[in-house]
Amino acid sequence: MVKKKSIFPLTKLSDVVSMKSGESITAERITSEGKFPCFGGNGLRGYTTTFTHDGSYTLIGRQGALCGNVTFVSGRFYASEHAIVVTPKKETDIKFMSYVLYDMNLNQYSESSAQPGLSVKKLLELEYPIPKNKEEQAAIAEALSNIDSLISALQKLIEKKKSIKQGALQELLTGKKRLPGFSVEWRQALFGDLFDFLPTNAFTRDQMTDNGTIQNVHYGDILTKYGACLDMAKTDVPYLLESVSVRKYSESSYVRAGDVIIADTAEDSTVGKCVELVNVHGKVLSGQHTMLCRPKVTFAPKFLGYYMNAGCFHNQMLPFITGIKVSSISKANISTLVLKYPTLVEEQQAIAQVFSDMDDEIAQLEKKLAKYQQIKQGMMQELLTGRIRLKEGETNA
Rank of each mutant, 00 (worst) to 15 (best):
L13M: 11
V280N: 05
A168H: 07
V255W: 03
L124V: 07
Q108A: 14
S327F: 13
S24F: 12
T58H: 06
Q63E: 15
C274Y: 01
G41W: 08
K5Q: 14
S6C: 11
S14C: 08
A300H: 08
E159P: 03
I130T: 02
S145T: 15
V184N: 10
L365K: 07
S110Q: 07
F303G: 01
P9N: 10
S245A: 14
T174G: 02
L365N: 03
I158E: 02
P88D: 05
C274L: 06
L179C: 02
V244Q: 11
G305L: 03
S330T: 15
L154I: 01
E127F: 05
E125H: 08
L124I: 05
A153C: 08
N396S: 14
A266K: 02
T336I: 07
E28I: 08
V217D: 07
V244D: 03
G117K: 05
D264M: 14
R294E: 08
G22F: 05
L169A: 00
G258I: 13
A310Q: 05
M379C: 04
M317Q: 15
C312Q: 09
I158V: 10
L66A: 12
Y47I: 12
D357H: 05
T200A: 07
M104P: 00
V237P: 01
V17H: 07
F299W: 10
S145W: 09
G61R: 08
N211Q: 14
E382W: 01
Y109R: 00
R387C: 09
L384Q: 01
S356H: 10
G220N: 13
K376S: 02
D193S: 13
I351C: 06
